[in-house]
C-alpha cells in the first residue's frame, strides 16, 4: 500500500487516460477536476504523489503549488506538474514538470521516480 496518487486535472479525457496508465502500474488513483477547492482535497486525501495540471478552473496550478510549499505538512509532497504551455519557465516548487502531450510511459516513470525520491527524502 502507500501508493496513492491524487490527480488534479479538469480535462476529463486526459484525466481518464492518466488514471488508466497509473492504475495499470498499480497506483491507486484519486481524481479531482477543480482548482478552487484543490487544497482541501489534497489535505483530506493525503496522497503520496500529486499530479497537477496548470490550467484549472477556479485556481491555477501555480497558486496551488505555492500554497503547498508554504504548508509545512505538505512542503515535501512530490508533485508532477503537467503543462500545455511549454516548460521553458517551469514553476517554482515543482518536483518535476512535464509538457503535454506526453508519452504515457514517461508519466508512469516520472510518478514512480518522484515518489521514490520523496520517500527517500523523508
Amino acid at each position: 500500500m502507500g501508493r496513492q496518487v491524487l490527480l488534479i486535472e479538469d480535462e476529463p479525457h486526459i484525466a481518464e487516460a492518466i488514471r488508466y496508465v497509473l492504475a495499470r502500474d498499480g497506483w491507486e488513483v484519486r481524481h479531482h477536476g477543480d482548482g478552487g477547492d484543490a487544497m482541501e482535497v489534497i489535505r483530506q486525501v493525503g496522497p503520496d504523489v500529486l499530479v497537477l495540471d496548470v490550467m484549472l478552473p477556479g485556481r491555477s496550478g501555480y497558486e496551488i503549488l505555492q500554497d503547498l510549499r508554504r504548508d509545512p505538512a505538505l512542503a515535501a509532497l512530490p508533485v508532477l506538474v503537467l503543462t500545455a504551455r511549454g516548460v521553458q519557465h517551469g514553476p517554482e516548487g515543482a518536483t518535476r514538470v512535464m509538457a503535454k502531450p506526453f508519452a504515457n510511459a514517461d508519466v508512469v516513470s516520472a510518478v514512480n521516480a518522484i515518489a521514490g525520491r520523496g520517500e527517500a527524502a523523508e
Partner: peptide, 18 residues
C-alpha cells in the same frame, strides 16, 4: 493557442498509446 491545441493532442496521444 498552444494550450488549446495541446489539450486535445494530449488525449489523442495518450489514448492511442493505450
Amino acid at each position: 493557442i498552444s494550450h488549446e491545441l495541446r489539450t486535445p493532442m494530449t488525449s489523442i496521444r495518450a489514448f492511442s498509446e493505450i
